[in-house]
Design a binder for these strands. Structure first.
Lengths: 225, 225
DNA sequence: GTTTTAATATGATAATTGTCATGTTTTCTT
DNA sequence: AAGAAAACATGACAATTATCATATTAAAAC
């Protein structure tokens, strides 16, 4: 099994602020996992006894409602940590995590991480920075939900996914999402998301290859009002 | 001017985790301010060079859109800190803060707080907990915006304000908000908020004394679907 | 390779919410 | 106290979005 000290992934998250000794200790108690696409990593209400460091793949954090919809609140990709918030508040999860493709993760038990958070100020300040960033993004989503149309929100979601998660060699978005996922990101009905994507296609703003989406004009999407 | 060491307000926020020495140092460089109702404390884009500790009063954190609406993202009351997020991310504010009634605040310069954050792990862990809580609340708002009707959201907002900020002796909500503020919390048009409040009144769920609102049936509001 | 199932697509219609107009009440100003 | 301004209220209508029905296509199972 790989060692945390040598793992390149940690460069991308707050684990980089741990000392070598701390990393060795964590390395000894972490467990590696392969998670298949579609697997629910944890559900709303679950007690999460640690954090996941995502080495590969991507997952969605969402919340289910009674009527069967689930709103996607955030996507967590390679390099990021999963489960930080619940860990820190010492509460059960308020969200569900589901793998969007095959993932490779390391699970670090709560006890180890909490000890470091309370002793290593550089580490906790780093986690704090990540959380502050997440909070800003969440605030922006709230404002968008309140002030923008489905059309605008979907255009912005496409740009966000394009910029944050990148594209395949053929230019299609590297994160493959169902139309339902798009609807759940934007906070609309699946049919509405499909309809708007069809419009974008007609207008030449995007093109599709199967369910893959390729952005043809970022500028065009940005101009949508 | 009052001294931080003796200030009771700090019991309610993360400043309680500072040592006596740290508090004395902060006390020497803080400044006290009286802020009149309606005053904009800081605007979107402003660099905030510190945090405000709210000793009395309440303010709203909101974001303006081009069309003149501003979505309220959070309300900050007596005992809480204001401006933490921007301070930590070292970015200009993404939100505007406006006093909802007369306020009394202490301003603590950035340099002092940052030093403590990086040296006192107990303090930074405490700030982390507050931020984790804020993030959870933000996630919940996103989900509500996506999955619930204006009617439901307004009912929940009333319950939230009732439970979090309390009531006057006559039972009316202690935080006096305009109908426009309610609309901006819920993320709807002012007229829609007014209409729904009128319905609630007809249904006997609330009563009004001028613009003051009194909840007559929390259970009734909770039952709204 | 065919059947079955799930995902995508689109039309028709209903429900929700926003916008504009206008009137009333309250609050502020002088 | 009178006038002006702001906030509140409500009706009429328009725009947006959701829901239901029903194809069509793609993926999965056998």
């Amino acid at each position: 099994m790989g060692k945390c000290e040598q793992c390149i992934i940690k460069q991308f998250n707050s684990l980089k602020s741990l000392t070598k000794d701390e990393l060795v200790r964590i390395s000894n108690c972490k467990t590696s996992h392969i998670i298949k696409k579609g697997t629910v990593i944890f559900e709303e209400g679950d007690a999460i006894n640690g954090v996941y460091c995502v080495k590969d793949g991507i997952c969605k954090l969402s919340k289910l409602s009674e009527n069967g919809k689930d709103q996607i609140v955030k996507m967590v990709v390679k390099g990021q940590l999963l489960g930080q918030r619940s860990l820190i508040s010492d509460e059960n999860s308020n969200l569900q995590a589901t793998a969007l493709n095959d993932m490779e993760v390391c699970f670090i038990p709560k006890s180890e991480i909490i000890a470091d958070l309370q002793k290593n100020p550089k580490f906790s300040f780093d986690v704090l920075k990540e959380m502050a960033h997440d909070l800003k993004e969440a605030d922006d989503i709230i404002v968008n939900m309140a002030q923008k149309s489905v059309r605008q929100r979907l255009a912005e979601a496409l740009i966000y996914i394009h910029n944050s998660f990148g594209v395949n060699p053929d230019g299609t978005l590297s994160v493959l999402l169902s139309r339902e996922d798009f609807a759940n990101i934007v906070g609309t009905a699946t049919e509405s998301a499909i309809r708007v994507l069809s419009q974008f296609k007609k207008e030449g703003l995007i093109s599709t290859i199967g369910k893959q989406i390729k952005i043809e004009s970022i500028e065009g999407l940005k101009r949508i009002e």
